[in-house]
Nucleic acid binder design. Structure first.
Length: 437
RNA sequence: CGGGGCGUAGCACAGCCUGGUAGUGCGCUCGCUUUGGGAGCGAGAGGUCGCAAGUUCGAAUCUUGCCGCCCCGACCA
């Protein structure tokens, strides 16, 4: 992509409404634009990152055997009356009336909708286990949206729903998602910690939330220091026994958010207990028959008798992760994208566009990267050098290649790693080798 | 939802107290000079001063009401 043809409205100064790093940087980098409180338009650069995260989440869900579908954003109130949540959910639910006077709502989550799909189509235990998910926009009318996309009212979420014949099988589904989440966060370049969690309005008896550490996190977390040295599970299929062993390993260390942490009961030695702040980026629940009982989601078991299925739900905040990753990975100059989610892998800077030698060298370099399928943003504008450097650091692409008249005289380009700040002078061929090789 | 703050050019702000030609910096356009870490000079474009009512000869400025946004708290993926 040539910057001259791209739409990336960056800001040199900090917008005053943005208080925390990710919000400030997303606005400055031209990733999002606020539409109203807690509701954002995703501009091309932000949209690219959002889609990258979404795709990684999707791939890991698919690998874990979940099947993607897509449920609507607007749901009928009657479904929610069946589960009694229409009255319980409170003002966070955005309620709408259609032209016929029917009560509708903008879905804050989809347990009722998925249970309806399940009950009208699945009748036999032979069709289980089943795990269905979608990646869809949700709306929760938060009293106080804040922190940009991290606590928006409208947000993109992956939510999966598992259906099993009994608790034992449901537990396997739960464990499978637990492990899939560990793999997902690792691919996103994040160190995530599973915490035993409160089940809240979704209900249920088993629940973990996944948090990433960042100073601006909204809740305080307490954990045993060794949990950070656990190895991410291999990216392969695991048997139910292997899954259980992995979950046991990850939950054997103490880890709790402030509302679940009781200092007197915590047995971790003082020197081993770390207190930091965390951002919740995922939450999984086993809630058994809560919805299948109320909504009549049953299948015939092996003995021919109907059984209400045992369910779980599994959420990942996709749009929140965009902000979360920035919180966990930035410096005073801007964002530092982990390579897997970076909008482009390489930023190519033409230091003197209009100069024949520079233009020719850049065009050639750009062409070769594109031919090799490497995503590159080529700053071919006539802006001054300082501005180009600052902008490239701001948007945080993992690698920067700078081509200017001075280097060209001695046949080198500057090759910079955004994360470490390390620079080296290389021949164009050597730089290409590093990026393509 | 309790408490606080702010709405003036795309962005950040001054002007308001004490009513009288709507300003500054950045950004944008054009020209010239520049060109290796957010340049200089010159010339421009860009505003229903959040909205409405009121007071007044006259309102960005005073009064009232409304709307929007931000921060702290409680709440929450």
């Amino acid at each position: 992509m040539r910057l001259s043809r791209f739409f990336m409205p960056t800001l040199k100064e900090d917008p005053k409404e943005a208080q925390i790093a990710s919000h400030r940087l997303m606005l400055r980098a031209g990733m999002v634009q606020q539409s109203s409180a807690g509701i954002y338009s995703w501009l091309p650069l932000g949209h690219m990152v959002l889609k990258k995260i979404e795709n990684i989440v999707r791939e890991e869900q698919n690998k874990a055997g979940a099947l993607e579908l897509l449920m609507p954003t607007i749901q009928p109130a009657d479904l929610w009356r069946e589960s009694d949540r229409y009255d319980d959910y409170g003002k966070e639910m955005l309620r709408i009336e259609d032209r016929h006077g029917r009560d509708m709502l903008y879905g804050p989550t989809n347990e009722e909708q998925i249970t309806d799909i399940f009950r009208s189509n699945v009748k036999s235990y032979k069709d289980l286990p089943l795990n269905l998910y979608h990646i869809q926009w949700k709306f929760r009318d938060e009293v106080r949206p804040r922190f940009g996309v991290m606590r928006g009212r409208e947000f993109l979420m992956k939510d999966a729903y598992s259906f099993d014949l009994d608790y034992e099988n449901s537990k396997i589904a739960y464990n499978r998602m637990f492990v899939a989440y560990l793999k997902t966060y690792a691919r996103l370049g994040l160190q995530a910690i599973p915490l035993r969690a409160d089940t809240g309005p979704i209900g249920g008896d088993l629940s973990h939330e996944f948090i990433i550490l960042a100073d601006t996190g909204e809740s305080e977390v307490f954990y045993h220091k060794d949990i950070l040295s656990l190895e991410t599970p291999e990216d392969k299929d695991q048997s139910p026994e292997e899954l259980q062993a992995l979950v046991d390993e990850w939950t054997s260390y103490y880890a709790a958010a402030d509302e679940m942490h009781v200092a007197e009961k915590c047995t971790v030695a003082e020197g081993d207990l770390i207190t930091r702040r965390g951002i919740e980026v995922g939450h999984i629940f086993h809630f058994g028959q809560k919805y299948s009982d109320k909504m009549g989601a049953s299948v015939a078991g092996p003995d021919g008798k109907d059984v209400n299925v045992s369910m779980g739900s599994y959420g990942i905040g996709v749009s929140r992760l965009v902000g979360g990753i920035i919180e966990a990975s930035h410096d005073e100059n801007g964002i530092i994208w982990p390579e897997e989610v970076a909008p482009f892998k390489v930023g190519l800077i033409n230091l003197k566009s209009g100069d024949d030698a520079c233009d020719a060298a850049c065009d050639e370099f750009y062409g070769k990267l594109q031919a090799a399928g490497v995503e590159v943003l080529y700053d071919d504008t006539s802006e001054r050098a300082g501005g180009k450097f600052a902008k490239m650091d701001l948007i945080g692409l993992p690698w920067q290649v700078t081509i200017g008249p001075r280097g060209l005289k001695s046949g080198v380009v500057e090759f910079k790693n955004r994360a470490s700040g390390e620079k080296e002078e290389l021949s164009p061929e050597a730089a290409l080798e590093k990026l393509i090789g």
